[in-house]
Design a protein around this nucleic acid. Structure first.
Lengths: 107, 107
DNA sequence: TTGCTATATGATTATATAATCATATTTGAA
DNA sequence: TTCAAATATGATTATATAATCATATAGCAA
């Protein structure tokens, strides 16, 4: 049935979790291996690996094997655009709410 | 601590669930009341109300009361841009995967 | 008031998710 | 071969989430 709609939700869900957002942010600088990623984001190796595998499965990350190391990278630049837009919303909301507080403080 | 990072995740999480995506898609046409939304997306009133409340809380939707009706609208155009980008990723991935299948079929 | 319509919310249940610990697997090097 | 490093995965647990049903609340109209 709604395989496309669910796929869309899966893609967005991949980008909506703090640990995964930390990974993606670290990968803004480019391809990195797991051994670089998990210390950088200060998460356990196994947890990091799960999130990486999950994001690769959902088409967010690419994966490349080189010897014993696995390199991951953000596969589509749209991923960064999505996060940048979401950050704009966060900023707008913070401004909006501080504005609302000022309004109400004014009485 | 990471209130900003968690807020970012919350915003994206608001956009990563099938029912909420149906709501947002319906609201592309503009502001609508709950009584219009839940039949359009074919979900229960109470479930729809919860998602609407949740998205309003996270700054995704605006809310306006008019008599007994409550009108919701998408608050930031960035929301649509995010979803459009995610849909691009879905399309790219579908193409990519069918390409991969063709590669392997070719042997 | 009474009653009707619109919306929200409490309680519950089922399911999904994230994190953790322990361990398996793979690969290159000694 | 044996070993160590890198990565993945099974089992478990705690928590979050979505949906549902029943009911509460708010506001308008008769």
């Amino acid at each position: 049935m709604s395989s496309a709609a669910n796929y869309l939700a899966d893609v967005l869900k991949s980008l909506s979790q703090p640990t995964r957002l930390k990974i993606i942010d670290f990968l803004r600088a480019g391809e990195r291996c797991v051994c670089e990623i998990f210390p950088a984001i200060d998460e356990e190796q196994s947890n990091t690996s799960r999130h990486l595998t999950s994001m690769q499965t959902h088409g967010i990350l690419s994966r490349r094997k080189e010897g014993v190391k696995i390199y991951y990278a953000v596969k589509h630049p749209e991923v960064f655009e999505i996060i940048d837009r979401a950050e704009e919303i966060v900023k707008l909301e913070i401004d909006f709410r501080s504005g609302v507080i000022k309004e109400s403080e004014r009485g």
